Amino acid sequence: MTSSSPLKGLSGILGFVLILGGAFGLLHEWFGWIRFFGFVRFLVPSGHEVFGYAVMIVLGLAVGAAGDLVGRRSRG
């Protein structure tokens, strides 16, 4: 039985939300599609939406990778 770190689970969820929120934000800005993760628009300053959503995607990837690293270190 393997025990997973709670930090790994939290960072996985946070990374997932940031990646999807950023991706759906970019789709909304570029194509005008329905805003799926609408709450993330409060995280991006007005006038800098495309850059802000791209930063959210990169930040989500970094948080997910850091959580994976923490999970590997706690097992080893």
Results as ranks from 00 to 15, higher is better:
Phe39His: 08
Gly67Lys: 03
Leu14Glu: 05
Arg73Tyr: 04
Ala23Gln: 08
Val70Gln: 14
Leu69Arg: 11
Ser5Pro: 04
Leu59Cys: 13
Trp30Lys: 12
Arg73Gln: 10
Gly12Arg: 00
Val50Ala: 05
Leu61Thr: 09
Met1Lys: 03
Arg35Asn: 05
Ser11His: 02
Gly47Glu: 10
Arg75Trp: 09
Ser5Leu: 11
Trp33Gln: 04
Glu49Gln: 12
Phe51Ser: 13
Val63Cys: 02
Leu20Ser: 07
Gly52Val: 06
Gly71Pro: 03
Leu43Pro: 13
Leu10Cys: 08
Lys8Arg: 14
Ser3His: 12
Leu10Asp: 06
Val55Lys: 12
Phe37Tyr: 15
Ser4Gly: 07
Gly38Gln: 09
Trp33Pro: 02
Gly32Pro: 11
Gly64Tyr: 02
Leu18Cys: 11
Lys8Ser: 12
Gly22Val: 09
Leu27Tyr: 01
Asp68Gly: 15
Ala66Ser: 06
Met56Leu: 15
Leu7Gly: 07
Leu7Asp: 00
Gly76Ile: 06
Gly64Gln: 03
Phe36Ser: 08
Gly9Asn: 01
Arg35Ala: 00
Ala23Tyr: 11
Leu43Lys: 08
Ile57Asn: 00
Ser4Pro: 06
Arg75Asp: 13
Leu14Ile: 15
Val55Ser: 13
Trp30His: 13
Lys8Gly: 07
Phe37Lys: 09
Gly22His: 06
Tyr53Cys: 05
Val70His: 14
Pro6Glu: 09
Ala62Trp: 10
Thr2Cys: 01
Ser5His: 13
Ile57Trp: 00
Gly60Tyr: 06
Phe31Ser: 13
Val44Glu: 08
Val50Ser: 05
Gly71Ala: 08
Val55Cys: 14
Leu61Cys: 14
Gly52Asp: 02
Ser74Trp: 14
Gly67Tyr: 03
Leu18Met: 15
Leu61Ala: 15
Leu61Lys: 03
Val17Pro: 01
Gly47Phe: 12
Val70Ser: 02
Ser5Gly: 07
Ile34Phe: 14
Arg73Asn: 04
Ala62Thr: 10
Tyr53Ala: 07
Val44Gly: 12
Met56Glu: 11
Gly21Tyr: 01
Gly15Leu: 00
Gly12Met: 01
Glu49Phe: 14
Val50His: 02
Gly60Trp: 09
Leu61Asn: 04
Gly9Gln: 01
Val17Trp: 05
